[in-house]
């Protein structure tokens, strides 16, 4: 199958199999920041933005992507770098495999939460699993990054 969509601001014609999900398509097209961790929509590693909102690319059918805007971390280099500096300053990226999807969620959260608190941040990020860090270092980084009181 074939359709036209926008990835990171560029219009592109995607070739894909009928049952294919977006995570697989994106990796095939070279967006290697997109990781997959679970096959069941449970881990958050594959988070990308669909029309500006964070979604699981493993649960989003590629066939539905006609005329949508998909954003991966490759398009957010400056912002991602800024947050990355906070995260690595805490050592909280660890193995790093969950970090791009986590960062996509954090950057979306920054746009969405007007008055972030530790509680609302934790709730927003609950779908991003991490087995290395124990989450606390991630929160220390976010509190500094977002200037939470």
């Amino acid at each position: 199958m074939q359709l036209e969509t926008t990835i990171n601001g560029n219009k592109i014609v995607l070739d894909f199999a009928g049952g294919e999900f977006l995570a697989e398509t994106l990796r095939r097209y070279g967006y290697l920041s997109v990781k997959e961790g679970c096959d069941t929509g449970s881990c958050g590693l594959c988070t990308v933005w669909l029309d500006g909102a964070p979604v699981l690319s493993c649960t989003t059918l590629t066939a539905r992507m006609e005329d949508h805007e998909i954003t991966t971390i490759e398009a957010l280099n400056v912002e991602a770098e800024e947050f990355a500096q906070f995260l690595v300053a805490e050592g909280a990226e660890q193995c790093g495999f969950c970090a791009p999807g986590f960062t996509m969620t954090v950057l979306a959260m920054r746009r969405e939460l007007k008055h972030p608190t530790v509680e609302s941040i934790n709730h927003y990020l609950a779908g991003n699993l991490c087995r290395c860090s124990g989450y606390k270092g991630q929160m220390r980084a976010i509190v500094k990054y977002m200037g939470v009181e």
């Binding site: 929509g41 958050g44 909102a53 964070p54 979604v55 699981l56 969620t105 709730h123 990020l125 779908g127």
Partner: peptide, 13 residues
């Protein structure tokens, strides 16, 4: 719905 996995899944389903 607020504890169903995470915002990314809830934005899909």
């Amino acid at each position: 719905v607020e504890n169903i996995v995470g915002v990314q899944l809830r934005k899909c389903v």
